[in-house]
Design a protein around this nucleic acid. Sequence first.
DNA 1: CGACAGCTTAATGTATACAATGCCAAAACG
DNA 2: CGTTTTGGCATTGTATACATTAAGCTGTCG
Lengths: 224, 224
Amino acid sequence: MSRASDRAYAIIRDMILAGELLSGAKIGEEALAEQCGVSRTPIREALSRLEAELLIRRSDTQRSFVADWSLDDVEEMFELRGLLESRAARRAAKRINWSQIERLKMHHEAIGHAIYAATPDTHRFIEHNHLFHGVILEASASAQLTTMLARIVERPIVHRTAQNYSFDDLKRSHRQHGELLAAFEHRDPVWAEAVMVSHIRRAFHAYASAHTGQRITDVSQAAE
Amino acid sequence: MSRASDRAYAIIRDMILAGELLSGAKIGEEALAEQCGVSRTPIREALSRLEAELLIRRSDTQRSFVADWSLDDVEEMFELRGLLESRAARRAAKRINWSQIERLKMHHEAIGHAIYAATPDTHRFIEHNHLFHGVILEASASAQLTTMLARIVERPIVHRTAQNYSFDDLKRSHRQHGELLAAFEHRDPVWAEAVMVSHIRRAFHAYASAHTGQRITDVSQAAE
DNA sequence: CGACAGCTTAATGTATACAATGCCAAAACG
DNA sequence: CGTTTTGGCATTGTATACATTAAGCTGTCG
């Protein structure tokens, strides 16, 4: 993470996530270079990565804009994520080892603590949720699934979904993780896959209901 | 296609496809720059794209190597392709319009001619096969599916699969395209999805049987 | 004889200057 | 007054020089 392009990537990504850059806004390389304190070269590399992750869009003449997401786009994204992540779960159930299950349990517990604390710790929930899914991806032992999912999971929508979770949503997510864990312990691919489909689908509906009637592309609103 | 980075991308990609670069071979930016007649800057961009498409691998210290593919990797790739492309077919069946169906029919006919000519025209088969699948992807109206599949379909394995098709394989592929066409005309998502799963799965087995007992990562062999 | 350290060499990462290209606005023409 | 063309400006694409970092080798020490 010490390379300038990595820092630039993180900075730009966080700006989009935080809503400092409005959807559809034009972003020039020069301006970003100044803000990030690096030259245009690493900026260009960062933009490539962000484009691959669909956080930015490029016009036909290579001008960069912050991507805007219609509800349909979001649903499509969740559909894709469900497709890939459930496949990962299926593969993982056949391959997961003891130490990976232990790590899953650890994150599962951490999530439990985050939810049932005096005041639910959303940040901690998100962090361990991410790690939980990361372990599954690792256990799936598929470089290609990993590559593709990395391009989806890092998107603002995914981050923001959990922030909109109600207490019930959090509990339900936690229960589903428990269900996944059980499926893994039984090495049951069909079970694991089914739970994951449901898990991701639920996440979509949590997002959708939090954003119905609201301009979901308005990042500053959505981030609250 | 006039940009230097595009040319560099095409050149390097073709070199890998043609087997001029052996699997696992180290490829330096400087050397490529000389061969492509451009500076290192566009080469670096081309390498990024090739890495995203998993045609090259990068070491932990960012050295580039031509990716090698185990049979497991190839199966995984076909699995992923089947997953995504069948989903595209499902979406397409609900959305496809008349002009897209017409184009599918056109490519279908062209493939038929290519197969049943005096001497089967593999090149033409591959071209129209690619276009056929492209129309389906277009009809699926999913930017994200399109982006992801582009990263899979352009890989050497996919290209080489059709080259190893027997006459029977070619006929079967053609028949399956006809089946897809029927599913689209009936606007039947379930049917279209099922046919596509079968279609891609068949392609994998055609590849696998052509390469059993053979070092499939040896590109120069496989390309023959 | 093997292993580690330090140096040498070669590769990648970054900055900057310049070229090419698209964009916009103002002016000229119909 | 509307449309089109042209000029300047802004932005991206490319080349090159330099900085940084890894890899490999050799010599010395255990």
